[in-house]
């Protein structure tokens, strides 16, 4: 069955064009933006430490807030970075409102298991490696690496001192490097394309949801 011209044109358009159309109220254009970026946004929230259902709820709220404030998007960076920023703020706000133990200084709450990670985790399994970090390290590292925030911005968003943020990121990064088999060559993994379509070999969160 042939697809409608509108559907095709939305898929062919760039984010900038789609945002331009969505600002005027086009739900089709915004729907395409949701399709492209929902995977990356949901993954970002899970990597920050949100549970599956929470992550999806916050991602949904983020898209709805973004649609209403789309005119405030200044095209100073990628659209997904803006979405990640909104989602991160909402998640951190939720954590602070729930007074979760994330921001406490009691390190014993975050003790990680002593046993070594299973051998298969030494593959490029970032998500499993992130689970080994303390919650606060996970948040700081994800904000820095996934949302692309500077150390100063991470400190501003979390409300932590800059030195503490730097320590968390360094410790988290060291742990990630030891947990992951990081190649010394420049053979970087293939990043997902802008439309968020990952290859079939990429892991899914379906197991986690079940």
């Amino acid at each position: 069955m042939p697809q409608s011209p509108g559907h095709n044109s939305a898929q062919d358009q760039s984010d900038i064009d789609l945002i331009g159309r969505a600002v005027t109220g086009s739900h089709t254009a915004f729907g395409e933006l949701v399709r492209r970026h929902s995977g990356a946004l949901r993954t970002h929230l899970r990597r920050m430490g949100a549970q599956s259902s929470d992550a999806d709820d916050i991602a949904q709220e983020t898209f709805m807030a973004a649609f209403e404030r789309l005119s405030e998007f200044r095209f100073e960076g990628p659209f997904i970075a803006w979405l990640k920023m909104i989602a991160s703020r909402r998640y951190l706000k939720k954590l602070k409102a729930a007074q979760k133990y994330l921001f406490t200084d009691d390190a014993t709450l975050f003790e990680t298991p002593d046993e070594a990670p299973p051998p298969d985790m030494r593959l490029h399994d970032l998500d499993s490696a992130l689970l080994q970090l303390k919650p606060i390290e996970r948040v700081c590292v994800t904000l820095n690496f996934s949302a692309g925030l500077s150390h100063v911005d991470v400190a501003a968003e979390t409300g932590l001192p800059l030195g503490t943020v730097k320590s968390h990121i360094k410790r988290g990064l060291d742990q990630l490097k030891s947990a992951l088999t990081v190649p010394n060559s420049s053979s970087h993994p293939i990043a997902s394309s802008q439309n968020g379509a990952a290859g079939s070999a990429t892991p899914t969160f379906m197991d986690e949801r079940r």
Binding site: S38, T43, H44, S146, P189, S192, A198, T204
Partner: peptide, 9 residues
């Protein structure tokens, strides 16, 4: 680069 990879849902 690993962070840039998002799994398929």
């Amino acid at each position: 680069a690993l962070f840039d990879i998002s799994p398929a849902y």
